[in-house]
Design a protein around this nucleic acid. Structure first.
Lengths: 212, 212
DNA sequence: GGGTAAGTAAACAGGTCTGTGTAGCTAAAA
DNA sequence: TTTTAGCTACACAGACCTGTTTACTTACCC
C-alpha cells in the first residue's frame, strides 16, 4: 500500500488553532447547510471541506440527522444583552436585520428554512424551530412589559410577524429595504400601544389623550 | 415477452374524467412537491402516483426542472375578483389565511419554500417567486389607492410583511391564530393611514380630525 | 387494413447519497 | 517501549436519483 506516500505530510495537520474537532465540523456544516440547503449538502462534502475523512466525521456525529440537530442548536443563540431603553432595543432589532439582509451571505431564517426543507415529519427539527421562534417572541414581550404595554403578549406576536415577514421577503427579493419597512410598521404598532418611539407622537396606553 | 399478462387490464385506464395528462401529472406533482418538498420527491414517485410510466412523464415534461417550473407557475394564481369595498377585501385576506392555516395540508408559501430549498443558484425559481410576491404587493397597493391612502406603496409592503410573517410563523408553529394577529396589526396600520376599518376609529388621512 | 400517436413495462447508464468496514499511520500516555 | 486513541485513505453496500433506451401494445384515423 502506498497510502502513506502523500498522506505523510498531512497527518495530524496544524493544531487547527484551538478549536475542537467537533466545533470545526459544526462550523463547516453551518456554512454549507445554511448557504446551500441541508438536503443539498452531503456528508462527504462537509468532510472534504473540513479536510478530514468521512470516518472521523461519523466518529463525532452518529448520523447526518444528529449533525443537522447540532447545527440548529448552535444557531439558537440569545440576542446580546443591552442596557439601552427597551423601545430602542426593539427598534434596533430591525436595524440589525437590515444589516444582515445587506450581507450577501444572508439566506433567510435557518429554522424556517429547515422546516420548509425537511418537512413536517421531522419532529426534532420542528421542535427546535418552535422553541427558537417562541424565544424571540418572549424577548419582545419582556421589553414591552418593561414599557408598561398592556397587551404585551399580542403586540409581541405582531412584532415577530414583522420580523419573519421581512426575512421571507428578503429571502426572495434580496431587498434590505424590507427591514426598514418592517421597522416603520413596528413604530406604528408601538405608538398605537402608547410607546414613545422618539418622534413625539406617543399615544397613551389607555384612551387617555396625550398633551395636545 | 409476458409484459402484457397483467398489463392487459390496466391499459388506457378509465378516461380519467376529462383532464389532460399534463394536468394530471401537474396535479400530482403539486401535491407531492408542496407537502413533502421538491427535493424530497423523485420523478419515479410522481409517475407511480399518477399511475403512468416514467417515460410518459418525460414525454410531457423534458426534465424535472421543467416540472418544477410548471408547478410554480400553476401555483401563481390571482385572487378572485371581489366587489366588496377595498378595506374589506384587504382584511378578508387574513381571514382566508386563517382558514388556510387551519387546513392540515397547509405547508407555507410554495414560492418561499422553493427558494429556501433550491437555493439562490436556481434563477428560474427565484424569478417566479419574486414575480409572485410583487403581484401580491401590487394587489394591496391597488386597493389602498382606491381608498385614497397617500403612502399606498409603503403600506402595501408592510401588509405583505404581515402576510408572509404569519405564513412563516404558522409553518413552524401550526397556529392559525397567527393570521388573526396579523389581521389585528393590519387594522392598526390601516387605521393609522386613515382607513375606516369598521370599528369607528378611522383616523383621517392628512392630520384632519374625524368627527368626534 | 395500414399507419401513427401515445401509452406500457422494464432494464440500464451513470451519478449521488448515507453509513460501514478495513487496514495502516502517528502522537502521546503508560 | 508498548499500548492506545484518534486519525487517514479507500473500498464497499445498498439505496435512490435523473434521464434514456428498447420492445411492445393499444386506440384511432385514413
Amino acid at each position: 500500500m502506498l497510502s502513506s506516500e502523500e498522506g505523510l505530510f498531512r497527518r495530524m495537520a496544524p493544531p487547527p488553532t484551538q478549536q475542537t474537532m467537533k466545533e470545526r465540523i459544526l462550523e463547516t456544516a453551518d456554512k454549507l447547510f445554511y448557504l446551500q440547503g441541508i438536503r443539498a449538502i452531503g456528508v462527504d462534502t462537509i468532510a472534504a471541506e473540513v479536510g478530514i475523512s468521512k470516518r472521523t466525521l461519523y466518529n463525532h456525529f452518529p448520523s447526518k440527522d444528529a449533525l443537522i440537530a447540532a447545527y440548529l442548536e448552535r444557531r439558537f443563540v440569545q440576542p446580546r444583552p443591552s442596557d439601552k431603553p427597551p423601545a430602542e432595543q426593539i427598534l434596533a432589532t430591525f436595524d440589525l436585520l437590515e444589516r444582515r439582509f445587506a450581507a450577501k451571505d444572508f439566506r433567510g431564517c435557518p429554522f424556517v428554512n429547515a422546516v420548509a426543507e425537511l418537512g413536517p415529519a421531522d419532529r426534532a427539527v420542528k421542535k427546535i424551530a418552535v422553541a427558537f421562534k417562541e424565544s424571540r417572541r418572549v424577548w419582545f414581550r419582556e421589553r414591552l412589559n418593561a414599557l408598561g404595554v398592556t397587551e404585551a403578549d399580542a403586540l409581541a406576536t405582531q412584532l415577530v410577524l414583522l420580523v419573519d415577514g421581512s426575512i421571507a421577503q428578503d429571502l426572495v427579493r434580496d431587498d434590505p429595504a424590507m427591514a426598514r419597512a418592517a421597522k416603520e410598521a413596528a413604530k406604528v404598532l408601538l405608538r398605537n400601544a402608547g410607546v414613545d418611539v422618539g418622534d413625539g407622537t406617543a399615544k397613551p396606553v389607555k384612551g387617555k389623550r396625550s398633551p395636545q
